[in-house]
Design a binder for these strands. Structure first.
Lengths: 264, 264
DNA sequence: ATGATTATATTTGTCCTACAACCCTACAAC
DNA sequence: GTTGTAGGGTTGTAGGACAAATATAATCAT
């Protein structure tokens, strides 16, 4: 049944419906509505402090039930994007009030986005390697070593190998003893991994695995030797090279100018 | 206008915000349910791949409507915490599939949590200052300088001053030209700011403002001078000191051992 | 007995209605 | 001018109904 004829767009513009179709035809309805509203906010058409259209208006204007609209708004509320006050309405919150970081997947589909993310990753993981060198426990070291073994072990470069690669990086982040650093590093690595999977992945890597493994060995050696700056430099170098292998080129102002990198 | 005007009862606008947050006794019902479920997951009682109880079961077991349960699950779905398949159920996703970072506010109520966050902040912003020194445009520099002026300007230490402080840090992060760094720095700064507001804030700072401003001047000078490592060291030093002022003590392995810090 | 097919039950997705709680404005009363 | 009150509007919650998709059980053909 459908009285879902929405002649009059009450609160929302028409281009949204086109967007809703374009974004993801197969995503659940509430998520699509949430994307529409969130785009209205990030695009500036809805500024902080503004009140959203009422749930009734949104529902009628999109030809959907108020229930769906409420689920969509629940998602925005969880991100601190809007605050709903009973009886008053839903209001866009200040950017400083956001309590979640969510990366737009479309930003990662082009090279520039990946470059930015790789740079951030190099910063974070470089520092993580430095801290880990000073704070690691023996258990941490064992975990890191085991991951390295898995990398060059049985599976060789296949699916399991790239998983072991991630375990290696995560283990180092965990060895800093700082759960926030661990959380952020894991998040960024996963974002990158998924983007690579989506895009090209597994094109011509083949023999480069040995190079890749070699870079990890340098990191681990520096960690064992207890040389924080060397560990940091090795990690930055590795991530820079890993990016270059898939076409991401970082601006090489990267600090390694000072010293340390020649170490081994 | 606002000089020393606010005895009590007049400047209600700012007070009311704090009060509304502080004495909000109950979060909205769906959010509470989402917290419960999310805790079930992060605590490991629900492992990746497991199926959540049915919406009916959750609703009945908590004595609430299925509508509320659905809104709660909508929030989890938005974070990539669970995936709901029509006809089958809602399943916990792998940690690598998460597509949002959300910090648990309760983790920030104790000193250890704040220490971890301050350490991460020092890492990130230190590197941001270094990059900004190399990449800043003249517009960036103007923005940063303006923020510094606002800091020691009219309002002195009051509410506006701490806002200008944040603007200073955000402007530096933006001057890196990397939107991800900017996003992450903003997020972490806001988290810290809110936690301080909630907890103690504004206890005995008073004259320390001048010290605080002085630290910012050192950062800006290094930026102008084009000395990346000095800028980085100054930023790390500033954040370390800022943390110390509110009782957060960072482990001082902090690299600043090399040089640079004595500069100025 | 085994494999394929069809029922059947379960579960999520969407819609609907209704009412409670609350906010805001306006207006009346003091 | 301040306070109290009434009304309409908006979000919050409840509950029921059905559609759509899935999983499980039963049935049938081979």
């Amino acid at each position: 049944m459908s009285g879902k004829r929405n002649q009059r767009g009450v609160g929302l513009t028409d281009d949204m419906k086109q967007l809703s179709q374009k974004l993801a035809p197969t995503q659940p309805l509430p998520s699509r509505v949430a994307s529409i509203l969130s785009q209205e906010i990030s695009s500036g058409r809805l500024k902080p402090g503004d009140r959203l259209p009422t749930e009734h208006q949104i529902a009628e204007s999109l030809g959907i039930s108020r229930n769906v609209v409420r689920e969509a708004i629940a998602q925005l509320r969880a991100d601190g994007l809007v605050r709903a006050r009973q009886g008053a309405g839903a209001f866009v919150m200040e950017p400083e009030e956001r309590l979640a970081i969510r990366l737009d997947p479309t930003d990662l589909e082009n090279i520039e986005g990946m470059e930015g993310l790789f740079e951030l990753r190099a910063l974070l993981e470089g520092e993580a390697a430095r801290l880990a060198t000073m704070r690691r426990t023996d258990d941490d070291l064992a975990e890191i070593s085991a991951a390295l073994e898995d990398m060059r072990g049985d599976e060789k470069w296949s699916e399991g190998s790239i998983e072991a690669d991630l375990v290696f990086h995560r283990a180092i982040a965990k060895a800093t003893g700082n759960s926030y650093i661990h959380t952020f590093v894991c998040f960024i690595c996963d974002q990158i991994r998924r983007s690579i999977h989506m895009a090209r992945y597994a094109n011509q890597i083949e023999q480069l695995v040995e190079v890749n493994v070699g870079e990890h060995v340098v990191i681990l050696d520096a960690l064992k030797a207890g040389d924080p700056e060397a560990a940091r430099a090795a990690m930055v170098h590795h991530i820079t090279e890993a990016g270059r292998r898939i076409g991401v080129i970082l601006r090489n102002e990267q600090n390694n100018s000072q010293q340390g990198i020649a170490a081994s």
